[in-house]
Structure formats: C-alpha cells, structure tokens
C-alpha cells in the first residue's frame, strides 16, 4: 500500500475534523504519522488551533481565565 505524502496527510488531518475517515485513509494516515515528525507537529497544531478558536469565541482569552 502506498504511504500518503505530507500534503495528502495535511488534507486528511484537516478532514478528520469534519468527517469520519475511511479505514484505508486512517491506516495510511497513522502509518505516515509514525514515520514523519513534521506531520505529527501539524497534527498537534491543528488540534491547538481548534482549542484556540473555541477559547477565542468563548472569550476565555485572558491569563486569569486561561489558568483556571
């Protein structure tokens, strides 16, 4: 089976937040992430951005609240 490229993996990491991935997509994604530190960083960064967006909208954007 072909391991997906970094570009395809960034697409899959994004789509994983919007739809269920197929088994084949999940397998390729996890295989790639096991081998690629750069894409593991992007995975964590996408998750961070989602949390940042949630906090921004909630108004949870100052030090006191962030530490609670």
């Amino acid at each position: 089976m072909m391991i997906p490229s970094c570009k395809r993996v960034s697409e899959l990491l994004s789509q994983a937040q919007d739809r269920p991935l197929t088994l084949k997509e999940k397998f390729g994604l996890y295989l790639h992430l096991a081998l690629c530190a750069g894409c593991r960083r992007v995975q964590r960064q996408f998750e961070f951005m989602r949390e940042a967006m949630r906090r921004y909208v909630e108004g949870d954007i100052d030090g006191d609240k962030a530490r609670r």
Binding site: S5, C6, K7, G38, R41, Q45
Partner: peptide
C-alpha cells in the same frame, strides 16, 4: 512529490 519544503516548526 508532496513532501514539506520546510519542516513544520
């Protein structure tokens, strides 16, 4: 070929 040009920070 789809590889990152620069490693994500």
């Amino acid at each position: 070929d789809g590889r990152w040009r620069a490693m994500p920070g």
